[in-house]
């Protein structure tokens, strides 16, 4: 577990900044394929919005368990990416050929649009979860040394 910081300034600022970071992360994610940004950038922003409150307010529970959960979440993100890539392959197209995604009532260009967004969400989940798990892992080592 991580002890909370004893500072009013940090607590208040964290409350204000965290939702802004998350909103900006969503913006970067959704506009990733037609403007600067994308899954990786959005993922690091989300990770920051998770790590900041943990530093400020602390967290209960064993760090190694939390780290393990973060790794599982990261795996699920890759599975989402690979699953969207694999669907067209199974349906007789090519890996990551979003045009062959089985979404009814949609033109090929629209399917490509949504397909890219889908894999970007997978990337975001994985990057955010990996960054958080790295934070837990470093923090766990630090605590071990303090004891």
């Amino acid at each position: 577990m991580i002890q909370p910081l004893d500072s009013v300034i940090v607590h208040t600022l964290t409350r204000v900044i965290t939702p802004v970071i998350q909103l900006f992360a969503l913006y970067v994610l959704i506009h990733g394929h037609d403007s600067p940004g994308g899954g990786f950038q959005a993922g690091t922003l989300f990770a920051a919005s998770v790590i900041l409150p943990i530093i400020a307010f602390g967290i209960q529970g064993s760090l190694s368990v939390l780290e393990r959960r973060a790794i599982i979440l990261g795996g699920i993100g890759i599975l989402l990416f690979a699953g969207i890539g694999l669907l067209p392959l199974i349906l007789g197209g090519e890996f990551l050929n979003y045009g062959k995604l089985p979404i009814p009532g949609m033109e090929a260009s629209a399917r490509r649009h949504w397909g890219i967004l889908g894999i970007e969400i997978g990337v975001t989940i994985t990057v955010a979860a990996t960054a958080v798990s790295i934070y837990y892992s470093l923090r766990e080592r630090g605590e071990g040394e303090e004891k």
């Binding site: 790794i71 599982i72 795996g75 699920i76 890759i78 599975l79 690979a82 890539g85 694999l86 392959l89 890996f95």
Partner: peptide, 13 residues
Amino acid sequence: FAIPFFAAIVIPV
């Protein structure tokens, strides 16, 4: 490629 790669991710999950 997909078969061992998928398995490599499913194993930790």
